[in-house]
Design a binder for these strands. Sequence first.
DNA 1: ATGTCGATTGCGAATCGA
Length: 262
Amino acid sequence: MRIATFNINGIKARLPRLIEWLEETRPTVACLQEIKSQDDGFPADEFEKIGYHAIWHGQKSFNGVAILADGVKPEETQRGLGVDGPKEGEGEQARYLEAHVNGVRIACLYLPNGNPHPGPKFDYKLAWMEKLRARMRELWQSEQPTIVTGDFNVIPHDDDVWSPKAMQDDALMQPESRDAYQRQLADGWTDAVRTLNPRGGVWTFWDYQRGAWQRDHGFRIDHCLLSPELADRLTAVGVDKDYRGREKASDHTPVWVELADG
DNA sequence: ATGTCGATTGCGAATCGA
């Protein structure tokens, strides 16, 4: 089976491109982030038409995550991590959704960006990562085949970015962000893209600004973390880079892992 | 030199978030 993650940056603006990608690459499971849609605006019918069943966790204007599966309805196991947003009285943002699909536990996340650093948004990012770590420990201990995937908004190493110097003040590569990410790996999770590309140089995001795509000024922030049960089944990873260059593209590309049958 | 997008408000163009 192939499990993909794709920060689509707006499901309404991206729908034709998203349908095109699903039909052309046909992932078994697709985890989406930044749907930027409320629950009742989610275009589930459009996915049903091409054979995908979905669950989603929406929010007005920003954030929002969804899990699509080919021919089977994802069985939701959790939504949210119980972290209030950075503004007073804001409540929780829609950033985490978890389900069972075909015997695999799927966690789809959109981790807070954290800019500007330092500040309340960065503090929120770190608090969110602490809650995520706690949930991932529970998942790990369940000993089920599990993937935690999505937009982590963390550049793990200097060779995961076109210019560490240009990005040095960004929340995506602060030592605190990186340390929190590395703690997840130390808990026993496998960064699938890193494992099969140990020298780095793989980008999953190119900014809309400053001609970043044309100059190949990108970095890697969309990750697939595998539990030991799934890491043993990993056969390939990929970035569907072609989609970044198309009309009305997201600023992220899809990233996927191929897993042998369990 | 925040140089581009998407959503929202509310019907043009500003604001916010990334």
